[in-house]
């Protein structure tokens, strides 16, 4: 085979490899997630973050508007401190609430934002105070079983 044709083929081969890597990065690995780098930062303290992870989505009404960048522990209040980056075009009133919900029964957890109605908006670095932590299914089942047991105990006592 001619040398020139080989050079061409090798060039195409290397370009194909680079193209594959770029597509993998953008389409599969979501490297475009750094779009939120320009966003502003909000904090929120939760009693329980469940299985929330960094890079979990932050949503309003199901639409993703940011992502969780850091999860830490507040040593004074013993609450889980979640740091989020929010898209700069979304301004949130200062009485906005945040909850941790689960997508479906087994899906991943995300931060759901309930916008408030106050005229002032959060500035970057502010902390959301109205929060509701993740629902602990174990605890819920425990309570249900306990109340069931208590209920049946009462009814058998009446007989």
């Amino acid at each position: 085979m001619e040398t020139r044709a080989i050079d061409w083929w090798v060039g195409i081969f290397v370009l194909l490899g680079i193209a594959a890597l770029v597509v993998l990065a953008l389409r599969v690995g979501n490297l475009s997630g750094f779009a939120y780098d320009s966003g502003y930062v909000l904090h929120a303290d939760f009693t329980n973050v469940g299985s929330l992870k960094t890079r979990s989505p932050v949503k309003i009404g199901g639409v993703t508007i940011g992502e969780v960048t850091h999860i830490g522990m507040n040593p004074k209040t013993y609450m889980a401190n979640v740091t989020m980056r929010i898209e700069p075009s979304i301004k949130l009133p200062i009485d906005t609430g945040a909850s941790i919900y689960t997508q479906g029964l087994l899906g991943e957890q995300y931060v759901a934002i309930q916008p408030g109605g106050m005229p002032q908006n959060f500035k970057s670095g502010a902390t959301i105070t109205l929060t509701q932590g993740a629902v602990n299914i174990d605890q819920m089942i425990g309570q249900m079983v306990f109340s069931k047991a208590a209920g049946s105990g009462k009814s058998s006592g009446n007989q």
Partner: peptide, 19 residues
Amino acid sequence: FWAQMQSNVTFSGDILTGL
């Protein structure tokens, strides 16, 4: 299909380590 993939695959942790 794509959204779940994107939120669980990391560029450095999965793609680059595989390469």
